[in-house]
Design a binder for these strands. Structure first.
Length: 288
DNA sequence: CTTGCGTCCTGCTCGC
DNA sequence: TGCGAGCAGGACGCAA
């Protein structure tokens, strides 16, 4: 569910709290959210797999994935899927969610109180992946991801879009092309760049690519600063909500007037995903 | 190899 | 008020 800005906002919260804390213990309430690095649901589980006994060195993000880096090159990768979220609570506080699948207890140096990290995911499209070594992490999980969407250079984006004849929207949602864009920001970026979502990626012109790369940088960065877009279940680990949804120009606005020209926004299904755009401002395949 | 479609899940909203 | 249909921020597996 969350896209790059939401995951980045979550990462910042987790990093400020969890860095240098040690994992005292962990428990798994639903085994099927634990995945191997290929994404398959995992059978057996050893406590060390969840980082028990190790210190958190940093919390990273790659695309939509969170990476809790522990001592000895071990990493826990968390994908939130459509409905996943992470919550931080003081030890002992009650949780009301029936979908709390993984729980970690962490403690800082000395006698500091324990903090609890909950992984909650009603639909269970998300999951917790376990990497036993840096090579596991890089070669099998993070490989195959394209460049970060908010910092990609126009020339790099151009080269990558040349490789596929799929629609530009489908290509932007493909994490191996660029990493971090989901359905909200794909529509927002295409609108800002004035590009029709159905235009084949390999026909996107250099001026269009420049506008797309600019829009990716500006929109994603702004959304990060606003704490992401809260549509339904996106919340930050402290319970706060993101404020970027009020800036959406097209997502969720099908049938409403375009903020730029006033014409009614179109809503279609493209690649199985709801797609909203302005046929006037994002005219058909303008190639430039 | 690439591409498009079905599937995995629960919860919420809307119309009857 | 209840009930079913439709929809949801993602990404994998599979068949053509």
């Amino acid at each position: 569910m969350p896209e790059l800005p939401e995951v980045e906002a979550i990462r910042r919260h987790l990093a400020s709290t969890l860095t240098n804390m040690s994992i005292d213990r962990a428990s798994v309430r639903r085994r099927d959210v634990i995945r191997d690095l290929g994404g398959r649901r995992r059978g057996r589980l050893h406590p060390a797999d969840l980082g028990v006994g190790r210190r958190v060195e940093m919390v990273d993000r790659r695309g939509k994935q969170l990476i809790v880096r522990l001592e000895d090159g071990i990493g826990i990768v968390i994908r939130l899927g459509m409905s996943g979220r992470l919550e931080l609570h003081p030890r002992g506080s009650r949780s009301t969610s029936p979908h709390r699948h993984v729980v970690w207890m962490l403690r800082g140096a000395g006698t500091s109180p324990e903090t609890r990290l909950d992984f909650i995911d009603p639909r269970r499209f998300g999951g917790v992946h376990l990497a036993q070594s840096p090579s596991d992490l890089e070669e099998r999980l993070l490989a195959g991801l394209g460049p970060e969407a908010h910092t990609i250079a126009p020339e790099t984006l151009y080269d990558r879009l040349r490789r596929t004849s799929r629609s530009i929207k489908t290509a932007m949602l493909d994490q191996s092309v660029i990493a971090g864009v989901g359905n909200i920001y794909a529509d927002e970026v295409l609108f800002a760049a004035g590009v029709h979502p159905n235009q084949p990626a390999n026909t996107i012109s250099r001026p269009q690519v420049k506008r797309l790369a600019d829009a990716l940088r500006v929109i994603l960065q702004k959304a990060i600063e606003q704490g992401g877009s809260t549509i339904q279940s996106h919340t930050l680990p402290d319970g706060g909500v993101g404020n970027f949804a009020s800036h959406h120009k097209v997502y969720g606005r099908g049938g409403l007037p375009c903020t730029r020209c006033g014409d009614s926004l179109d809503r279609v299904v493209l690649g199985g995903r709801s797609t909203t755009f302005c046929a006037t401002c994002q005219g058909v395949h303008p190639h430039g």
